[in-house]
Simulated assay, not measured.
Amino acid sequence: MDDHRAQVEELLADYRRSREQLASVQRELAAVSGRASSPDGTVTAVVGSGGKLVELELSELAYRRHRPEQLAELIVRTVGEAAATAAEGTYQTLGSVLPSATDPAALVAGTADLQPAEYRAELAQQPARRRADDDEDNEQRESWLDSELIDRRVR
């Protein structure tokens, strides 16, 4: 009987350690964040755990330097960079507790149990994202706000 009791105690101790480790990993994952700024410094984004946008900062110059569609794309791109940084933090946190053969990125993406051909087919079905040519658009430094004000005064 004592041998059985010792086994039960050992299993309970293992369970408690595993549960404590899981709680620790969950706290680390909740604290993961990523921060990115646009190349010109007019947009800064912070993304928290799970890829959620938690902070977006636009400088006054953002409205002067970029037309609305350019600014929108710059915001999306900057948030994407912050999300990628946060994702890397997530992968590092998970990588410390997963078996060495497990890819944390694949686990988070939900493709850990799929063969590469299966998830490549899924990716091929997603619509391609449109990227605007910022160089050509940024050559024109006229502020879209000033243009709108001039148009209003002329009317």
Rank of each mutant, 00 (worst) to 15 (best):
A45S: 09
V46L: 07
G51W: 02
L53P: 00
V54T: 14
E55L: 06
E57L: 06
E57C: 02
S59Q: 03
Y63R: 07
Y63T: 11
Y63N: 04
Y63D: 02
R64C: 12
H66A: 11
H66S: 05
Q70F: 00
E73H: 07
R77D: 15
T85A: 10
T85S: 04
T85Q: 04
T85P: 00
E88Q: 13
E88I: 09
G89P: 06
G89H: 03
T90M: 09
Y91F: 14
L94W: 02
G95I: 01
S96P: 02
S96R: 12
V97K: 06
L98H: 05
P99R: 00
S100V: 12
A101P: 07
A101Y: 09
D103P: 03
A105N: 08
A106R: 02
A109L: 11
G110Q: 07
T111E: 06
A112R: 01
L114Y: 01
Q115H: 08
Q115N: 08
P116E: 01
E118I: 05
Y119H: 11
R120P: 09
A128N: 06
R129G: 13
R129Q: 14
R130Q: 11
R131H: 13
A132S: 15
D134Q: 06
D135W: 11
D137V: 01
N138Q: 09
N138T: 06
E139R: 08
Q140Y: 12
R141E: 15
E142L: 13
S147G: 08
D151R: 11
